[in-house]
Amino acid sequence: MHKKTLVSTLVAFSLAGLLLGGCSSNSSKKSSSSDTKAAKVTKITAVGSTALQPLVEQAAQDYQATNKDVNLTVQGGGSGTGLSQVQQGAVQIGNSDIFAEQSSGIKAKQLVDHRVAVVGMTPVVNPTTGVTNVTMAQLRDIFTGKITNWKQVGGKDQKISVINRAQGSGTRATFKSAVLEGKKAVTSQEQDSNGTVQKLVASTPGAVSYLAFSYVNTKVKALSINNVKPTDTNVESNKWTIWSYEHMYTKGQPDKATAGFLKYMTSSKVQGDLVQKLGYISIHDMKVTKNAKNVVTK
């Protein structure tokens, strides 16, 4: 009694799979012959940075509410995945925390950069360390392993435990270029997400790491560097130097539908509202620009 249904299910499924697969590739080629609706629906997929995902996802949802002719899919997967996939042409938009020029193996010339937000990062410590301010040189020494006890920088007699970010992650790249000056960080714990780092720093005595501004809460202490506080205003004037852009890359110039969405991302509607709600800094508020070689110009 089971068997006939079994066979038919199998057959039906392989057929359904073929059909659906066909459908999806059709719609991506914008042919709507099999579609019951007359409207052409353009499919846009954005893949990459997990940090940027919430912003783009929310913006995409709002955008689709008024633009019925696009179907946006926003996914994470990491900046590396985003850049590789957009370069291969597998997706329309690659979200990244780092400049394409900074990652080896990417032909940055083929890609067009669309900066959609700025993210500020700050060193954070466990509140028990008793440290609130360090100099840039001290911070560098902490992360390169030269300073190993908090009393060397005016805190308690407590061992420093460094929690770094995953190799190749955008956050680490930004921190490295702004703080380490090309020196090698001490091999230590690595975590790949803001949430985990926040939890670990909050619970580990003597812990130090760095977080995007939006993940700093009352359980961790954000450090000032050279007495400059990590605030949005200081980032906008580059007084606070640890910040980076959030990029949305396209391969060559984007097509009309993608360009429309990217324009929406930089419109005041997103920049003035969503960007701030999600803890980013609007691209329009920046008084300086930074290029891939980390040179800042007014």
């Binding site: 995902q53 994470g76 997400s193 949430g195």
Partner: peptide, 8 residues
């Protein structure tokens, strides 16, 4: 997983 790692 998402709200624990990158949830804001």
């Amino acid at each position: 997983w998402k709200v624990n790692t990158e949830g804001v």
